[in-house]
Simulated assay, not measured.
Amino acid sequence: MNLLKSEWIKATTTKSMYWLYGLGIALAVGLAIIIGQFEQPSTGEPMAGEPGGGSDPLFAILGVSVFTVTLAWIAAIVAVTGEYRYHTVKATFLTTPSRWPAVLAKTALFTVMTMVVTAVAVIISLLVAGALSGQDSWTPFSGDGLGYLLRFPVYAGLGTIAVMGLAYIMRNAAGTISLFLVWTLALEGMVALIPRVGQDIAGWMPFANGDFWTQGESVRGNITWGEWSAFAWFAAVCVVLWIVGLVIVQRRDA
Rank of each mutant, 00 (worst) to 15 (best):
A131E: 11
A131N: 10
A131H: 12
S133G: 15
S133C: 12
D136F: 07
T139F: 02
P140T: 10
D144L: 14
L146F: 10
L146K: 08
G147Y: 01
L149W: 00
L149M: 08
L150Y: 06
L150A: 12
L150V: 11
R151C: 13
R151D: 07
F152M: 14
P153E: 04
P153G: 03
Y155R: 04
A156C: 08
A156I: 12
G157L: 07
G157V: 11
G159H: 01
I161P: 02
I161M: 05
V163D: 04
V163Q: 05
G165I: 02
L166G: 13
I169R: 01
M170A: 06
R171H: 13
A174Q: 05
A174W: 03
G175A: 15
T176N: 05
I177L: 03
I177W: 01
S178L: 12
S178K: 01
L179R: 06
F180I: 09
L181C: 07
V182E: 01
T184E: 09
E188A: 04
G189F: 02
M190L: 13
A192G: 10
A192Y: 04
A192K: 13
A192S: 10
L193G: 08
I194F: 08
P195S: 03
P195I: 04
R196M: 10
Q199T: 11
Q199I: 10
